[in-house]
């Protein structure tokens, strides 16, 4: 059975769902970020596969993926800085403990 577009789409869906699951079930702030990166990887595979099979030769999906990479790098940098501040202020990175404002 040769590899078709569907194989890549299913792989992308699996990665995306793993990412969402990770975001929902992680307590460590850094692990949440990792899960987000995994979800973005799923989206990227989706886009590259579409670019390969739906619009061969135009590379629109690949360009989109490059921009997603840029944004995720920028986001990771900012997130790192915010997590440092969290750690400095709370001495913990447990998302459940960082909850001063519940009502």
């Amino acid at each position: 059975m040769s590899i078709t577009l569907y194989h890549y789409l299913i792989l992308a869906a699996i990665l995306f769902c793993i990412g969402i699951y990770g975001i929902l079930t992680s307590k460590h702030a850094v692990r949440v970020l990792m899960s987000i990166e995994i979800a973005f990887a799923g989206v990227s595979i989706n886009l590259v596969a579409f670019s390969n099979y739906i619009t061969p030769g135009t590379l629109a999906g690949q360009i989109f993926t490059l921009f997603i990479m840029t944004v995720s790098a920028a986001e990771a940098g900012v997130a790192l800085a915010i997590i440092f501040n969290i750690y400095k202020n709370f001495r913990t990175v447990d998302i459940d403990k960082i909850d001063l404002m519940k009502r």
Partner: peptide, 20 residues
């Protein structure tokens, strides 16, 4: 990106942290 994340893990490492 991942190196940054790993640094974040190491720099926020606290044995008493409940995050793990």
């Amino acid at each position: 990106v991942t190196i940054m994340l790993i640094f974040a893990i190491w720099l926020t490492n606290n044995k008493n942290d409940t995050a793990n």
